[in-house]
């Protein structure tokens, strides 16, 4: 054991010299490495912020904006979109002079103030804790970082691929977005809309896609037993519809479910959330009938 201990002062001094030289070299190495290290750490923590944002987006946002940001028509606009990211697109249309990132941050934190004049059935809720939302500031930043990470794929889209559908499928089509329509009385507006609907009957397939039925309901027979996320599977609707409610035929039941969804809810979906109650206004009578027939058709074309 005594050999562990050096008595010679010269040896101790040499140990001291050598170790301080090694220490100096190590410190110099750190000094030289700091710039690349900080750069790597910066992108590392940005990357982690995006990862956190992905989890939050998946839990909170994908229900309306789609799991890959492609948007769900009638629920939320596309974010993974050329129109959204290009400076001459969305930013210019709404007259925003700040950066897109700030716009995203602010929209997530404070939500949309109203849905007046918007085609989206849902209002963007406030998420930031400062505005009464559920998220902390850092979480809002993470979600914004995740949304901004679509820039690469969005800017690579051609206009045809762009999933953003600005004001196309709105109930109030471009014909009604004018001062003349706004100045009409409510009855006159209703008549004008009825006339418009009668002239522009959509196919059930179009309605299914454009009115965001597919956001909650599933038509795939392969997943008939899979309860689905927000609404019942409709692949085998023709088998069940007639027996759901006492005294209603299959057609009557489906019709009622669309125009008056609150009348009856399938037991397993009571806690999921309500189906929008706006379809009676949005769909004309012809469209409704066609949709009911299509939904109950065992060999329907998709």
């Amino acid at each position: 054991m005594h050999r562990l201990y050096t008595r010679s002062p010269i040896a101790k001094i040499v140990w001291g010299i050598l170790s301080s030289l090694i220490g100096i070299i190590a410190l110099l190495m750190v000094l030289v490495s700091e710039n690349p290290r900080m750069e790597a750490q910066t992108i590392n923590w940005q990357g982690r912020s995006i990862e956190n944002g992905a989890t939050l987006f998946d839990n909170n946002c994908s229900r309306c904006h789609g799991p890959s940001g492609q948007g769900l028509v009638g629920l939320g606009p596309a974010l993974n979109s050329y129109y959204f990211f290009t400076p001459t697109g969305r930013m210019k249309d709404i007259g925003w002079v700040g950066s897109l990132e700030d716009y995203v941050l602010l929209t997530i934190a404070a939500g949309r103030p109203s849905k007046a004049g918007s085609q989206w059935a849902e209002v963007m809720p406030t998420w930031g804790g400062n505005y009464g939302g559920p998220m902390r500031g850092d979480q809002v930043e993470d979600v914004a970082a995740y949304v901004m990470n679509w820039r690469g794929s969005a800017l690579a889209q051609t206009p045809e691929e762009d999933p953003f559908r600005p004001f196309e499928d709105v109930l109030q089509s471009t014909e009604f977005q004018n001062t003349a329509f706004i100045l009409m009385s409510e009855e006159e507006q209703a008549i004008a809309i009825e006339e418009y609907k009668a002239l522009n009957t959509r196919s059930p397939q179009e309605i299914w896609a454009n009115e965001a039925c597919l956001g909650c309901h599933n038509l795939s027979l392969a997943q008939a037993d899979d309860p689905g996320q927000n609404g019942p599977n409709m692949a085998d609707l023709f088998e069940r519809a007639g027996s759901r409610v006492e005294g209603l035929t299959a057609e009557e039941y489906v019709y009622q479910s669309i125009v008056e969804p609150a009348a009856f809810t399938v037991a397993t979906y009571e806690n999921v959330g309500q189906m929008p109650q706006t379809y009676a206004e949005k769909l004309s009578e012809d469209e409704l009938q066609a949709l009911v027939a299509w939904l109950l058709d065992p060999d329907r074309e998709e």
């Binding site: 001291g16 301080s20 100096i24 700091e34």
Partner: peptide
Amino acid sequence: RRELLTYVWAGTLAVMTLGSGIAAYQ
């Protein structure tokens, strides 16, 4: 030789302190 080595050691320690000073400055 022992005296000289001690001075060298003091010198390396001074450089080390200077290095720590640079680090603190940064």
